[in-house]
Nucleic acid binder design. Structure first.
Length: 233
DNA sequence: AATGAATGCAACCGCAGCAGA
DNA sequence: TTCTGCTGCGGTTGCATTCAT
């Protein structure tokens, strides 16, 4: 049998239109089937990826908001590199997007940190902030039953880019800079010890109840508000 | 204005888990 | 129970754009 040559690389607008049409017709399952019936010279895998990461109308476009950034931080400390899990808590964001975001920003942060370290030989990481992470023995993948047992309150004031932690007497406030430094320092530890990223138990996730969020991987798409006319011009 | 570096993002690859035959 | 195909996930790569010099 002659295997039909599969297309690779960037998708054309025409391919997008075609894929959207067939997903609308058959749903976003059975990607191999979809790839075949659509006539696209793409693998089912490729079609799925294109849909999930780009064409899905439920997706949010544009920069991450500070709230989202904070949430990613918190969730990463909880789940580690479980991007799909994290994406599930961020409606309209894909695992790929979050993964890219994380890599970019952690890398940037690491570079900034390096610069700072070169300037000042004294490490700033002796803050009480790093205490809480280094004292944590939980891995990000630790089961959630223990995750919520910490007797700390974790609140986020919208738009303020700070985490408020602790009880009324011992309230601590962390800026995003501190958070990033913490992330960076934990990553260094990970690199050195070949251990998973230590979850800061105090970064528990509890200001956004799960019920408020719907997974981007849930089977829901094409609500009536979607308008694809721009595809067809 | 040119060009090299840095950054952001889309897409691919390989693997694991799951479901159905 | 085993096999096979499909789906989803995480890691990685490569290209396009933006920025700095």
């Amino acid at each position: 049998m002659v295997q039909e040559e599969m297309r690779k690389g960037p998708w054309t607008e025409q391919e997008d239109v075609q894929l959207v049409f067939y997903v609308k017709m058959f749903g976003d399952r059975r990607w191999d089937f979809l790839a075949k019936v659509s006539g696209l010279k793409r693998s089912g895998k490729s079609c799925r990826l294109r849909w999930v990461n780009y064409l899905n109308p439920a997706l949010k476009r544009g920069k991450m908001t500070p709230q989202e950034e904070l949430l990613v931080l918190q969730l990463h400390s909880k789940y580690g590199n479980r991007w799909s899990k994290i994406a599930g808590k961020l409606p309209g964001r894909t695992d790929n997007e979050i993964k890219n975001y994380w890599r970019t920003h952690v890398r940037k942060q690491a570079q900034d940190e390096k610069k700072n370290t070169n300037k000042a030989s004294v490490s700033p990481s002796s803050s009480n902030f790093s205490n809480c992470s280094s004292s944590s023995a939980n891995s990000p993948a630790e089961d959630s039953s223990t995750e919520r047992n910490d007797c700390v309150e974790l609140l986020q004031v919208a738009g303020e880019n700070k985490i408020y932690e602790g009880d009324e007497q011992n309230m601590m406030v962390y800026s995003m800079d501190e958070i990033w430094k913490e992330v960076e320092s934990t990553e260094e530890i990970e690199t050195r010890n070949d251990l998973p990223v230590m979850a800061s138990t105090t970064w528990d996730y509890n200001y956004c109840p799960d019920s408020l969020w719907t997974s981007t991987h849930d089977h829901c798409y094409f609500d009536n508000h979607q308008d694809f006319s721009f595809f067809t011009g």
